[in-house]
Write a protein that binds this DNA or RNA. Structure first.
Length: 813
RNA sequence: GCCGGGGUGGCGGAACGGUAGACGCGGGGGACUUAAAAUCCUCUGCCCGCGAGGGCGUGUGGGUUCGACUCCCACCCCCGGCACCA
């Protein structure tokens, strides 16, 4: 018998697929847009071309591969495009390490990855391929930026921002993890710089509310986004420094504790600090403290082990509820970037305020107590439910905490000293970067006219060639003097170009729409075509993008919908986040140096073995460990499938007789279909087909052997596409990828007998093969007869008998 | 601290309230072979027993149920997110 030779087979079928354009899906014509119900858009997050693909990537892309094949064979028109997230830090840093120009290194990596993907035999529509660093693409990224600018959603301002001293650029808040740069791990600094922002905070509530429109997203991703947005309802209360005639509003979620405020605290960076201390004999000391406190690193300042520090300003504010005068302090435990940068301190009911009050011997006044019981004296009492009530709070005393919150805010509002307010943790998205390898921001500065957007017809603003692209703290683009100096489109006078580039995450915030119309030179995309394909039916990617890419893409989509560019509100209806592949106990990644690349495995064992193994290894949503040992089993399985199928092939493809093997085959169809289609379990279908192949191998003379082998080949096709096509052809058929998915015959799933499990008091005591269709009484009677059951009944009367038809009898004595 | 996910043989894992450990790896025994590889057969949770058989077993302790890896309560451990957010 001819041996299974993956190399030849795989090359052969990859050529056939390409020649016959098997996985290319054209857009619908104008009259076909109503076919929407039959389309499926399967999308995986696009790779960074910062190196080659490793086995972790292979596992990720296998998910989309199986889903795409499965849906196509169910009659759907499946679009599965691919692209490259080519701009940005990952690619640029790779170029710096490899010592080439970012464009050359990026393009080399793109070519290598594409070749790897082709060798894996993935069903991808390469007609739609895009790379975000190509002017054909980033022209439209710039165009979209200008639409955001016009809508007031892209703006420039000076603000304290996060600066990575290693990467020499500012970062978005989302790119700072525990005070460190998400990419390089360096501790970030805070700098006051003028930067570009997207007004994502204007969409904070929408991003929360419209989670309801999502069909199926993992709960943990939604939770992470909710935490990140960090919405909390409260109120703004205005305190006042009478002698300076200065109002100091605070944000609080606990207006019910206003009568318990005993001091007041400003963040060290608060802009009113200099004014407050003006003329004070201690002004210098106080300002000195404020400067030092503000300069502490974010990591240091957030360390809960470090004791809070502070200094008294000598000023007092008036509490609007009772006109009490509260001393104003400055302390590093109050953050300028949350709320108003000022707080009312209620030590009796807030742990941080309590700790500060202890340290500086400030008074503690209890105003909320449990309805029953006592308040412990040595800690803040933080309860505020229906079971807590107010005391020592004038006319509000005796009210339950929640009602008191409302009543006090209403009372303040009527006097113009407060109002309901909502606080968010989310900050605007800082999108400008002082790096070379990114999309230029299409803005000009004219001495006469000020800030001017580049006219649409002048797009793209091409990324200039520069001699030196290494990061130096200001954008390398500034060195391209001829490029920077330009003409103002409004007055014709001299103007300068914006030299910062955009964050990579801007590029990837709309690529999923561009795929629909990737070759369009006249516009970013045709809206009708975008509305046909989107939202993405199944999006697949890593959990590491739970709040970066996935939040930004949702924001972009909502803005594009609001300004009339698309007809949908959410980009990704269903999201699946797969687990990471580990090797030697750590996430497989180039930076850790523990990658296994598929190439030599493809060479030795074939792409199909890799494809199968990476899904067989465990549930795709969980992390998995690469083990060479397990790979052997898959190689054996493929060889067995090959032998068993070729052995069965000569039999005539006659009507399938009703045999045990035929029934097993139908049961396997049902299992595999349910696992992939409904449960999204991609490891168990492989086990099911293995079982079937083992069964054929054990009963080669069964008249249904050919049918069973054919079915095994058909069911494994989404996983091992090459060997499946080859065997399908050798079975005398044509094109398996176009073949409808097999259907289980319900009649063949029914059985004439079944193994009745007999329990006594819930413990299995015996099993017996019985006919289907016996009455419950007959089943109980059969069960009682069994010798082993009788010995356990021990002559005692059966008190109760539970019968699960087709399964078991449980006798209770 | 708050939120989310997870804890099952020597290992990866299966079991969608009804036979715990499918499938695969590893290991033992055997067949084929001069031999090896490949392939095939067979056994393989732990303990007691020659055996028939029995007992114990899904992180821990309770509970619901005729029946719990699965549902509920409390706790322990691991992974991830948020966290001086007022």
């Amino acid at each position: 018998m001819e041996r299974y030779d993956p190399k030849t087979i795989e090359r052969k079928w990859q050529d056939v697929w390409e020649r016959e354009r098997a996985f290319y899906v054209p857009n619908p014509g104008a009259g076909e847009l109503d076919r929407h119900a039959r389309k499926t858009y399967v999308l995986e997050m696009l790779p960074y071309p910062s190196g080659e693909l490793h086995m972790g990537h292979v596992r990720n892309y296998m998910l989309g591969e199986v889903v795409a094949h499965f849906r196509r064979r169910h009659g759907y028109e499946v679009m599965r495009p691919m692209g490259f997230d080519a701009f940005g830090l990952p690619a640029e840093n790779a170029a710096i390490n490899e010592g080439g120009h970012p464009r050359e290194v990026t393009q080399r990596n793109i070519a290598a990855i594409r070749r790897q993907m082709e060798r894996m035999g993935w069903a991808i529509d390469w007609d739609r391929v895009l790379a975000t660093h190509e002017p054909e693409y980033y022209r439209w990224t710039q165009w979209l930026f200008l639409r955001f600018y016009e809508a007031g959603l892209a703006y420039r301002k000076e603000a304290p921002v996060k600066w990575c001293p290693n990467d020499q650029t500012v970062l978005a808040n989302e790119q700072v993890i525990d005070g460190r740069c998400e990419r390089c791990g360096a501790e970030v600094e805070v700098r006051n710089l003028e930067q570009w922002f997207f007004r994502i905070t204007a969409y904070a509530d929408t991003l929360l509310e419209e989670m309801a429109l999502l069909e199926s997203w993992p709960e943990r991703v939604l939770t992470m986004q909710r935490n990140w947005i960090g919405r909390s309802e409260g109120s703004e209360v205005v305190f006042r420094i009478d002698e300076l005639e200065v109002d100091l509003p605070v944000f609080t979620t606990r207006p019910d504790t206003l009568f318990g405020a005993t001091f007041f605290v400003l963040a060290p960076e608060h802009p009113l600090v200099p004014k407050l201390v003006e003329g004070s004999p201690h002004a210098d000391e106080i300002l000195d403290y404020a400067r030092h406190a503000a300069a502490r690193s974010a990591v240091d300042r957030a360390d809960p082990e470090k004791e809070k520090t502070g200094v008294f300003t000598g000023r007092f504010v008036t509490n609007p509820v009772n006109d009490h005068r509260l001393p104003v302090w400055i302390s590093d435990y109050v953050l300028m970037e949350y709320g108003t940068g000022a707080i009312m301190a209620v030590p009796a009911h807030d742990e941080r305020d309590y700790a500060f009050a202890q340290r500086y011997e400030l008074p503690v006044k209890v105003v909320v107590v449990p309805a029953e019981g006592e308040v412990e004296g040595d800690a803040a009492y933080v309860g505020h439910s229906e079971d807590e009530k107010l005391v020592d709070s004038a006319q509000f005393s005796g009210m339950p905490s929640p009602a008191a919150k409302e009543a006090i805010v209403e009372w303040l509002e009527s006097r113009g000293r407060g109002r309901p307010a909502v606080g968010y943790r989310l900050r605007d998205w800082l999108l400008s970067r002082q790096r070379y390898w990114g999309c230029p921001i299409p803005i000009l500065y004219c001495d006469e006219c000020g800030m001017i957007p580049v006219p649409d017809e002048d797009l793209p603003v091409l990324l200039p060639e520069v001699a030196e692209y290494l990061p130096k703290g200001r954008s390398p683009l500034a060195a391209a003097e001829e490029w920077v100096a330009t003409t103002c489109p409004a007055c014709g006078g001299p103007a300068r170009r914006e030299t910062d580039t955009m964050d990579t995450f801007v590029d990837s915030s709309w690529y999923f729409i561009r795929y629909c119309d990737a070759r369009n030179d006249g516009e970013a995309f045709d809206r009708a075509v975008a509305d046909y394909w989107l939202p993405v039916n199944q999006y697949i990617g890593g959990i590491e993008h739970a709040i970066l890419h996935l939040l930004y893409a949702r924001f972009f989509t909502k803005v594009m919908n609001d300004i009339g560019l698309v007809g949908f509100r959410e980009p990704f209806a269903r999201l699946f986040t797969q687990g990471m592949l580990h090797y030697h106990g750590a996430k497989m990644s180039k930076s850790r140096g523990n990658v296994i690349v598929p190439d030599e495995y493809i060479e030795r064992y074939g792409a199909d073995a890799c494809r199968l193994y990476l899904l067989f290894i465990g549930p795709v949503e969980q992390d998995a460990e690469w083990q060479d040992a397990g790979f052997e089993g898959i190689v054996r399985f493929l060889n067995r499938l090959w032998r068993v199928t070729l052995a069965a092939a000569p039999a005539p493809a006659a009507d399938v007789p009703d045999t045990p093997l035929a029934r097993k085959t139908h049961a396997t169809i049902a299992r595999v279909t349910d696992d992939i289609g409904r449960r999204f379990a991609l490891n168990t279908p492989i086990a099911a087909v293995m079982e079937l192949v083992n069964e054929i191998s054990r009963t080669p003379a069964d008249p249904a052997a050919r049918f069973a082998a054919e079915t095994a080949v058909s069911l494994i096709q989404p996983y091992a596409s090459h060997i499946a096509e080859e065997l399908w052809e050798r079975l005398g058929h044509e094109r398996l990828w176009e073949e409808p998915w097999p259907e289980a015959d319900p009649a063949m799933l029914e059985r004439e007998t079944f193994e009745l499990v007999v329990q006594v008091n819930g413990r299995v005591r015996d099993r017996v093969e019985v006919a289907v269709g016996l009455s419950e009484d007959e089943l109980v009677a059969r069960a009682k007869e069994l010798p082993r059951v009788r010995s356990h009944l021990d002559g005692k009367p059966v008190r109760k008998a539970i019968v699960v038809p087709g399964r078991l009898v449980n006798l209770v004595v």
